[in-house]
Simulated assay, not measured.
Amino acid sequence: MGAAKAAAARRRGVLDLEAQFAFFRSQHRHPVNAAAHALLTWPILFTNLLILHFLPLPLPLPVDPALALALAYAAAYLAVDRRAGALAGLLFLAAWAASRALAERLGFAASWRVVLATQLFCWTWQFLGHGLFERKGPTLNELPEVFLMEPFLIFLQILNKLFGYEPYPGFCKNVDKKMEADLKESRELEQRKIT
């Protein structure tokens, strides 16, 4: 089953927005799990930025690691959708600025406690959301893809639900078709596993 999921991930392509959004929606169908991810993914990223401000570097870099991460996310999101990507990129830059200010205010020891508590709480609820409500574990073999795209997919879903935003006309219909295909493939894999 792991090989099949890895093959499906390769077919999707990290920056294939339709396929990524369809897969994300197919993995987060239960409202409690979807809410847990919507509420807890961005705090994970924020605390990642927070702790990066204290990362000891062997060589001086022209940009701090937290800013480099924020810029990398912003660039990836701009690559998949200019309008929503620009807004998400601005959110990342705001998160970088806020995490920098918080790091300066708290110092390393207090920041580390905030990061640890937040990460433990958020990750626990995300795993529980998958296990208890979706009845299947998260796709751990796709973690790099998840770390990169999930915050944007959550943001895109919020824009779609609140404002009817679509990157282009027909996007949601295409996503629905791909989501049904993902669900069908998942059901077939589960059936093969049972027999």
Rank of each mutant, 00 (worst) to 15 (best):
A109D: 13
Y168S: 12
K173G: 08
T47V: 15
A97G: 10
E190W: 14
L50N: 01
R82K: 11
K184L: 03
S26N: 06
G2Q: 11
L87R: 11
V63F: 09
D16P: 01
E150W: 15
L67S: 00
F92R: 00
P151A: 11
R192V: 00
F23Y: 15
V146R: 12
A84T: 04
L15W: 03
H30M: 03
K173E: 14
R29W: 07
S99G: 09
L67K: 00
L50V: 07
L59N: 01
E185V: 08
H37P: 00
L17G: 01
P169Q: 05
W123H: 11
P60G: 06
V32L: 13
T41G: 05
A66P: 01
W96T: 01
F152K: 06
L116G: 06
Q157E: 15
M1E: 10
L106S: 05
V175W: 00
M149R: 06
Q157N: 12
A75R: 08
S26K: 07
L52Q: 04
P60F: 09
P62A: 11
A79M: 04
A117K: 08
H30F: 02
S111C: 02
L132M: 07
L93K: 01
H130T: 07
L71Y: 01
A110M: 10
A95P: 05
D81V: 04
V146Q: 12
F127A: 08
H37D: 12
